[in-house]
């Protein structure tokens, strides 16, 4: 297990196949505590599948997936993994459309997830303050009592980010956060993520190269389920194979 030493997330030789199609091939990835990592790659590279594996949605055929050096994520279910402190923002915005913005955030607020707690739960002042703070951060204060279904695509993205923050996870998995956002919003998101990093670890998947550049962190290039290159954005974009994957064929 010491291979996983000093890592918040450790993936080694992970393989996933769907009816014979190999979505992940011997994927290895190590994220250090407090690190922010950008993962890029063409469509179908397996980025989302990688997040599915980490969050327990998809079970790998083989390979190790360890959280905080010791917890074997391949044996835990989604809820347990979330409780361990892994939060996820989905590629397709997936907020609860029939709940209000406030309820969406309240559901995500860190705290006990048991049935009994839910039945007798009353929002504390601390939680109320936290909720308002989050609404502030994602700029949805005015929409607090609006049904999430009626938000714009970009606002839904924000709401999801807000829900992710509300969970106060140790590791954030963020799948294409800025799709559908304006340039200004993209910039804000980048600085938001940067402000969280350090305290928490973050894995960001994004196609938007400007955004990735903005983040200014180590980049992992995924292609056909394996890591093609790793390093700074400048480093990887100089890599011939990466250029070929993005431009070639």
């Amino acid at each position: 297990m010491d291979k996983a030493a000093n890592s918040i997330l450790y993936l080694d030789d992970v393989n996933v196949s769907f009816d014979g199609f190999k979505a992940l091939k011997a994927l290895s990835l190590i994220i250090e505590p407090g690190e922010m990592r950008a993962v890029i790659g063409p469509n179908g590279a397996g980025k989302t599948t990688m997040m599915d594996v980490i969050t327990g949605k998809t079970r790998p055929d083989t390979g190790d997936v360890l959280f905080a050096e010791t917890r074997d994520l391949t044996r835990l279910d989604e809820a347990t993994i979330a409780e361990l402190g892994i939060g996820r923002k989905f590629q397709k915005p997936s907020v609860f459309e029939k709940l209000t913005v406030g309820e969406n955030l309240a559901l995500a607020l860190a705290g006990n997830r048991g049935v009994r707690d839910a039945l007798f739960w009353r929002m504390s002042t601390r939680e109320k303050a936290r909720l308002d703070e989050l609404l502030e951060i994602v700029r949805l204060g005015a929409q607090k009592d609006m049904l999430a279904a009626r938000l714009s695509h970009g606002q839904k993205q924000w709401l999801e980010i807000g829900m992710l923050l509300a969970q106060e996870p140790k590791l954030l998995l963020v799948d294409e956060p800025v799709a559908g956002m304006t340039d200004a919003e993209t910039e804000t998101t980048a600085s938001l993520l940067k402000s969280i990093a350090g305290e928490r670890s973050i894995v960001v998947v994004e196609h938007d190269m400007n955004f990735v550049r903005e983040l200014d962190v180590k980049v992992t290039v995924l292609h056909e389920g394996t890591v093609l290159a790793e390093g700074s954005l400048d480093h990887v974009s100089a890599d011939n194979r990466v250029i070929e994957v993005y431009l070639g064929r």
Partner: peptide, 26 residues
Amino acid sequence: SRLGVVLTAIRDAESRTRFLGYRVEA
């Protein structure tokens, strides 16, 4: 109650609720 909110969440997006850490089956 909040439990009702969770139930509604489960109804509309079961697996999303799981990823928030709720034990849907319970």
